[in-house]
Write a protein that binds this DNA or RNA. Structure first.
Lengths: 344, 344
DNA sequence: CTTAGCACTCAAGCTTCCAGAGTGCTAACG
DNA sequence: CGTTAGCACTCTGGAAGCTTGAGTGCTAAG
């Protein structure tokens, strides 16, 4: 596919992309020769640029502007040219410091991770809350709110808490509730949540025959609790960092961004889709389903704990992104979260 | 203060403000006479307008534009001219319908309230989470996460849940933890949370002398839990509604708004400050400390349950807001939330 | 006191113009 | 034959000037 690109063309493409990333302005042939000493004249560069445009790596906004990378151009750059540098001492320190503070719960921790992503990259940081489904049951607790309303508090192995108000048909006494609690805790502890659901449905069918009303109530209750666990939270930090970039200095663009960031569920889906892959990944422009995020790129990485909790984090910025800096930031932050989760 | 305003001046001021609210364009003398049949000529209107400008109710953006209301103008309008209409059938229905759906927890309920505020007004809806401080203790539960990490789950009378991970110095056994749980629950149930804090500090001093290590641990633990309850969540819905208003069709304005909406804690504080007052209140422009919300008005109302839970909700929009519609929407929504809270 | 008339002002939109940056092509050069 | 200098051409963006329309303030007459 790229066989036509000789060394010189690659050098020139790289120069153009890096200049554009740095300045945001279309890059002309003269600029290339001035800033990078390639030992060739602007005219030669022009010839090569015409070829690169032909090949789909560049395009010109209009005849008398310089060239700008296309998505294909960025993709080629990211895949074959980037040298992922080590994190600078300062960045590494910034990330690790944000994890050294003790006594924070999972939620605060993830939020901080988002903040550090945003602060170190100066783009927007996204961190998804681990899917509750994937976690392991540790403890359930019922608190009676009124005669027919019961609050269920569900705790996962990782200390993640979810709660839900359940309305029951006939009142359950405090004693019964306690028995149900003990029964469920002894029965379910240590099971992955996804299995818990199946188990309950199965047991309900079997127990039906036994007519043990307490057990029946227990299952009825837990079915309600596990049935509709709210999924999907995402922390977005530093979205306003993106505002000052020249590529979004336009009313319509900005409205679009604003609207997209308002719909958290879009972002949840976005990160969810990126979860599958291991390692750090770069999605450029239309490579991800970017409703309202045209002209953006997303660098993601997943975090996973030994106990199976997993989620995704990433940095969202313009396609004109300093990939070589952002990629190690994302990778390192994901590693730190994983480590934190295992530390329990 | 307003003694100089005769009936005619008031009529003209009202006409100007209502026209401006409707169109967003500065209102000229000719427009006033055309749209409202006051039986006077544009020249007369001009004279009156000059007086109104003198008095600080109006100003002109420049000599050859019409007049625009000042904050003082809006204030006068809201205080003395507005007739708060009853809610139209449709609006009332929309609000009540959003409360008729059963089985939602407090959080979802408040979020929905925000959505309905935003949808019915087409501005932004804000709803603050009730202050945990003001609620009544119902139940505490400890779950051991690891030898030194304990998850505390705190439930208020209203079914509001907060949780916190606490790190302890020396390991606590499961049995001890259970005793502590029982002890605290029997001791604290029914107390307002603000009193709980004081109580714990007091008891800790007294118990110190007794050297009962279990009790000491109990208090130590609960002190940590109650010490730093995270306060302040606010649901912001439909912020992007504001984007299409002509008064914010400007890059700088929009960035400011974006940044302000990103800092939820600012909005929390804002609503918190408005909580004190009972009934529905209108804050115009600089009347509230609107960091980044210049040119906006805020209509708020507090919701209170019999059990003492309270919070604030409101609609944030441009100062050029359809107050006569927004005020009853806010008032009715607050009533509905209060009713819902009491229904437990 | 009200109003018609008039001169004046100002913003916004339009055209025109110019400078600057960059291109593509061609012809000369090593 | 690849490379380069030169040149004509194109296009954007900003500045300057012009026009239009809406609206005002003032004055003098009703």
């Amino acid at each position: 596919m790229y066989r036509d690109l000789n060394e010189r063309s690659r050098k020139i493409l790289e120069a153009i992309i890096e200049d554009f990333i740095a300045t945001g302005e279309p890059v002309g042939s003269r600029t290339v020769t001035r800033r990078h000493h390639l030992g060739i004249s602007p005219a030669t560069v022009r010839n090569v640029m015409a070829d690169l445009e032909e090949a789909g790596f560049l395009y010109s906004p209009h005849t008398s502007a310089g060239r700008v990378p296309t998505e294909k151009g960025y993709r080629f750059y990211v895949d074959t040219m980037i040298e992922v540098r080590d994190l600078s001492f300062n960045l590494r320190k910034a990330i690790e410091d944000s994890f050294s503070m003790g006594g924070l719960g999972l939620e605060d921790r993830l939020k901080r991770a988002g903040q550090v992503l945003s602060a170190t990259s100066s783009y927007a940081g996204l961190v998804s809350y681990p899917s509750f489904e994937a976690t392991v049951f540790r403890h359930i607790e019922f608190v009676k709110l009124s005669s027919k309303k019961i609050l269920a508090v569900l705790v996962s192995q990782s200390g993640n808490v979810q709660n839900k108000v359940v309305e029951v048909q006939k009142p359950i006494s405090k004693g019964e509730l306690e028995k149900i609690t003990n029964f469920l805790n002894s029965k379910l502890t240590g099971l992955p949540l996804c299995e818990v659901k199946g188990l309950i449905v199965k047991e309900m069918k079997e127990e039906k025959a036994l007519y043990d009303s307490l057990l029946q109530q227990a299952f009825e209750l837990s079915r309600e609790v596990f049935e509709s666990q709210t999924e999907g939270t995402v922390f977005v930090e530093g979205a306003s960092n993106i505002l000052d970039l020249p590529e979004f200095a336009d009313l319509e663009c900005m409205k679009r961004l604003f609207r997209t960031f308002e719909q958290k569920n879009l972002l949840v889906d976005l990160l969810e889709k990126c979860r599958s892959a291991e390692g750090t990944h770069v999605f450029i422009g239309s490579e991800f389903d970017s409703c309202g995020l045209e002209g953006c790129s997303l660098v993601t990485s997943s975090y996973v704990s030994k106990s199976g909790i997993s989620g995704t984090l990433g940095i969202l910025g313009p396609s004109r992104m300093t990939y070589s800096v952002v990629i190690p930031i994302v990778a390192h932050t994901a590693r730190q979260i994983s480590r934190f989760l295992d530390a329990d």
